[in-house]
Simulated assay, not measured.
Amino acid sequence: MDLHVFPMGPLEVNCYLLLGQASTEAGGGLEAVAVDPGGNPRKALDLLQKTGARLTHVLCTHLHFDHIGGVRALVEATGATACASPQDAYLLESELGRGGFMGLPEIELFDVTPLTPGEYVFAGQPCRVLATPGHSPGSLSFYFPAIGRVFVGDLLFNRSVGRTDFPGGDFATLVRSIKEQIFTLPGATIVHSGHGESTTVDNERTHNPYLSEF
């Protein structure tokens, strides 16, 4: 599986594009899945065109405006299905989901297919969708065990954690999500956050000042 990262939007959200070989049952060929397109997806679309990969799904870790600004454009250009937790659907009726405040543009709404925790296959790879609330009520993380990577949105950062002062956020819930869902993954698992650089489960379990015993 190939992984590409495109910082998007005014807050430079990390949009991840994963490309993998589809199974014979799925028709074969190169498939792709995108995580959190936060702005103009032109570079991601250029890569899809260059590789000939078919984008099947757009996965939203949560529905805050900065993480979904490019979803509609990406879906309209590719026919992919946009997926998010139904527990975050209410955000699209608020400024926190729609944007339009602090001089930021309002996003274009899109159809959302409800996604619940469980086992799936995206871009030819098994994926475990984890419920990781705290930053938002419906925050999800996407764990790909075969490649040892988990995409956590704004749940966890390198030596930091996500904000919980937005409506629907809760610090105790966020910490519990990290410890029960992320810190139980293999230590070498690479943690891909919604902003900034990646880290690992072991690094955060040992050194994150919000989560370690020291």
Rank of each mutant, 00 (worst) to 15 (best):
L17G: 15
L17P: 08
L18K: 00
L18V: 15
L19P: 00
L19R: 14
G20E: 11
G20V: 01
G20T: 09
A22T: 13
A22C: 14
S23L: 12
S23Q: 14
T24I: 15
T24W: 14
E25M: 04
E25I: 09
E25Q: 14
A26Q: 14
G28V: 00
G28Y: 12
G29A: 04
G29C: 00
G29S: 05
E31M: 05
E31R: 10
A32L: 12
A32T: 07
A34R: 03
V35Q: 11
V35H: 14
D36H: 15
D36G: 10
P37C: 11
P37S: 05
P37T: 11
G38Y: 13
G38L: 11
N40G: 04
R42T: 13
R42W: 12
R42M: 10
R42N: 08
A44V: 10
A44D: 00
A44Y: 01
D46T: 07
D46L: 10
L47F: 05
L48G: 08
L48A: 12
L48W: 09
T51Q: 05
T51R: 11
G52M: 01
G52P: 02
A53I: 01
R54W: 03
R54N: 01
R54V: 13
R54G: 01
R54P: 00
L55I: 06
L55W: 11
T56E: 12
H57E: 07
H57M: 03
V58N: 03
V58R: 01
V58H: 03
V58E: 03
L59E: 02
L59M: 04
L59V: 04
C60Q: 07
T61A: 14
H62F: 11
L63S: 09
L63I: 07
F65Y: 10
D66F: 13
D66L: 03
H67F: 12
H67S: 08
H67G: 08
I68D: 03
G69H: 11
G69L: 04
R72W: 09
R72S: 14
A73Q: 12
V75K: 04
E76P: 00
E76Y: 02
A77Y: 12
T78G: 05
A80H: 02
A80P: 02
T81S: 05
T81N: 05
T81M: 06
A82L: 06
C83R: 15
C83W: 10
A84S: 12
P86G: 04
Q87G: 00
Y90M: 00
Y90N: 06
L92Q: 07
E93R: 11
S94L: 12
S94H: 08
E95Q: 13
L96M: 13
L96P: 01
G97L: 00
G97H: 00
G97R: 00
G97S: 02
G97T: 00
R98Y: 09
G99N: 10
G99P: 08
G100Y: 13
F101L: 08
F101G: 03
M102P: 02
M102H: 14
G103Q: 12
